[in-house]
């Protein structure tokens, strides 16, 4: 099939960008979306033009590197699917596809479709861990964790940090990302001692980075390639209120 692509091109953070159009010819339905872009890039290089820059790595939906708005939808039209796992059979001959980078003040564009998501790392730095040094851990079975707690924690821990939640949110909120980590550690006994400190720190950092608030649009949950539930945001709010109440009673 043949497609027409309208792609955001921006040489660097300093330059202004614009949409440019390209033809993608002889696209096989079995190609992944990124393979389709590979083929377009090969043609661009041969034609002496600059290839389209986009982040990608594992191409099996787990590293969280890739991510772009495809026809106005984060990671494209297929639910629970990262762009690298989206296949061209989702499109049909003659389709026009608009491809844009994630847009958020906290995710500045580096080039074309590549954005800087280091804000996520800084949110984790504010408490998205258990403060345990290597060595001296008790036996793994000394900490009993019921199956449902472990399963709940795993549901939230599945986050790949791709940023689709921010991209899809009309407020550019990172609540799903932050809430997922708070829920993962909050469901486990290992996460309890630092639970208050974690939620206060991570929420504060999320605000410092310039993400918007959660208005419960539900777009993040829909965009999440790992189908993380907005229940994690509820958990974050609850923990935040409890932690704030405890903090002010200790003041």
């Amino acid at each position: 099939m043949n497609l027409k692509l309208h792609v955001w091109r921006q040489p660097s953070a300093k330059d202004t960008g614009r949409i440019e159009s390209y033809e993608a010819r002889d696209v096989s339905p079995d190609m992944s979306f990124l393979e389709m872009l590979d083929v377009v890039n090969e043609e661009l290089i041969v034609a002496g033009k600059r290839p389209i820059a986009f982040d990608h790595d594992c191409r099996e939906g787990i590293c969280g590197s890739c991510g772009m708005m495809i026809n106005g939808v984060a990671h494209g039209p297929q639910k629970a699917t990262a762009a690298c796992q989206l296949h061209m059979r989702t499109f049909k001959d003659g389709d026009e596809i608009v491809i844009e980078p994630w847009r958020a003040r906290a995710f500045p564009i580096i080039k074309d479709l590549v954005v800087d998501r280091s804000a996520f790392d800084r949110i984790i730095q504010r408490g998205g861990y258990v403060s345990v040094n290597t060595g001296g851990a008790p036996d793994g079975n000394d900490i009993l964790i019921g199956k449902s707690s472990a399963d709940h924690a795993m549901d939230a821990a599945a986050c790949i940090g791709c940023g689709a939640c921010v991209a899809a949110c009309p407020n550019a909120s990172s609540s799903l990302f932050t809430g997922a980590k708070i829920t993962h550690l909050g469901k486990l006994p290992q996460g309890q001692p630092e639970r208050d400190r974690r939620v206060i720190g991570m929420v504060e950092q999320m605000d410092i980075e310039g993400f918007g608030n959660c208005s419960w649009f539900g777009e993040c949950q829909e965009a999440c390639p790992k189908e993380i539930s907005i229940d994690v945001i509820k958990q974050m709010n609850r923990d935040y209120v409890a932690a704030s109440a405890r903090a002010s009673s200790n003041e």
């Binding site: 861990y129 258990v130 345990v132 290597t134 060595g135 851990a137 008790p138 036996d139 793994g140 079975n141 900490i143 009993l144 964790i145 019921g146 199956k147 707690s149 472990a150 924690a153 795993m154 821990a157 993962h184 550690l185 486990l188 290992q190 996460g191």
Partner: peptide, 22 residues
């Protein structure tokens, strides 16, 4: 054996049995 213990302490959500064991 130490690796498993360390990872559990970090909060890695390994699969568990109903009784809470790994």
């Amino acid at each position: 054996v130490n690796i498993i213990d360390q990872c559990v302490a970090q909060g890695v959500p390994f699969a568990r049995e109903y009784g809470g064991h790994l």
